[in-house]
Design a protein around this nucleic acid. Structure first.
Length: 321
DNA sequence: GCGTCCAGGTCTACC
DNA sequence: GGTAGACCTGGACGC
């Protein structure tokens, strides 16, 4: 396994737009990782890693030094090269973007005045933010492995991809395994990927995506600068990425309903179990857009991270769907 | 044990 | 433009 030994390159504090709950944001209650499933979260400190569009690896140590009302995050960036003052400024800008430090969620919470679901969500998960990744490939791996598989099987495929082809990042006496690069996956045969990572028909799909990224593809930052529709269409040019996957991967983040979440939102939005969850997806997406507009992605993230509370509050059996 | 069924989409062929 | 059917494979389920 390729190993990167990184050393401290930059240390700075970020002031964030309140309310901002550090723990809820970077260590989400439903268990989704910030950047890699192998990141370490101890004593309200996160050690994680990311790959930049330049292919450089960074180690990140993030720690809250404030409260949800007065949020501050102490950031340490670990790198494998000597960094300049310009690099340090870019690290600060990058973390601001990744943590959505400047995003004001108060307009979202204002919807609670006339919306009982948003009222519950904003109370349960006050200060939780969505986050961004500068590395597109892990999001695409997530989207592809989620397709047509129970979550345990998706986890199995992702774990095997990281163990077989991932990279080891060591810094600050910690070790973090990170996702494989598109270059690594593009070089493997589909049959090897299928066998070692139990990817099934997804093996050639993932390899094709890795090859497409290697030929040049917009970065997440590029996609964000496009309109939401343009970004989605660009992502859907990748074979194996359809409407649902593009909604997950796009930094504009749509309302990525799959069969499982369609069952949940059918109960929350129209108060009944769907007869055919897959058929109901377009209708549910339209209802969500009309009800929450640009904040529907936030509603989606909040709901997925608040299932046990919502089940009790609205007397719905959402945990067994 | 063993066989059967199906899952947190996408693509293609066919009408 | 709409839709049925195929797609890997592991695990749940019934027997």
């Amino acid at each position: 396994m390729k190993t990167h030994e990184l050393s401290l390159s930059s240390r700075f504090e970020l002031k964030l737009v309140p309310p901002y709950d550090f723990r809820l944001t970077i260590h989400k209650p439903a268990g989704w990782s910030f950047l890699t499933p192998d990141e370490v979260f101890e004593d309200d400190t996160l050690w994680t890693a990311t790959r930049l569009p330049t292919d450089e690896m960074l180690g990140l140590k993030l720690r809250s030094a404030g409260t949800a009302a007065k949020p501050t995050i102490r950031c340490e960036v670990y790198s494998g090269k000597r960094v300049t003052a310009t690099d340090k400024k870019q690290f600060s800008n990058l973390l601001t973007w990744m943590l959505r430090a400047e995003e004001d969620v108060k307009p979202f919470y204002a919807l609670a005045k006339h919306d009982s679901l948003v009222k519950a969500l904003s109370k349960d998960r006050y200060g939780m933010h969505r986050t961004e990744r500068p590395d597109l490939f892990p999001q695409l791996i997530l989207a592809v492995t989620l397709q047509m598989a129970p979550i345990a099987r998706s986890d199995q495929m992702m774990d095997l991809l990281i163990k077989e082809y991932g990279e080891k990042i060591t810094f600050d006496d910690k070790e973090v395994l990170y996702w494989p690069s598109p270059e690594t996956i593009a070089k493997k045969s589909a049959s090897e990927l299928r066998e070692k990572c139990k990817l099934g028909y997804r093996a050639p799909v993932l390899q094709g995506i890795a090859e497409a990224l290697g030929r040049g593809f917009p970065t997440p930052m590029d996609l964000e600068s496009m309109s939401a529709e343009e970004a989605k269409l660009k992502l859907m040019e990748l074979k194996g990425i359809g409407d649902y996957s593009a909604d997950i991967v796009s930094p504009h983040f749509g309302f990525p309903l799959d069969v499982w979440s369609a069952k949940i939102f059918s109960l929350l939005l129209v108060g009944r179990h769907p007869k055919s969850p897959r058929t109901d997806i377009p209708k549910l997406k339209r209802i969500a857009e009309k009800r929450w507009g640009k904040w529907r992605g936030y509603v989606f993230t909040y709901v997925l991270n608040d299932i046990p509370n919502l089940s009790k509050r609205f007397k719905l059996n959402l945990e067994d769907l």
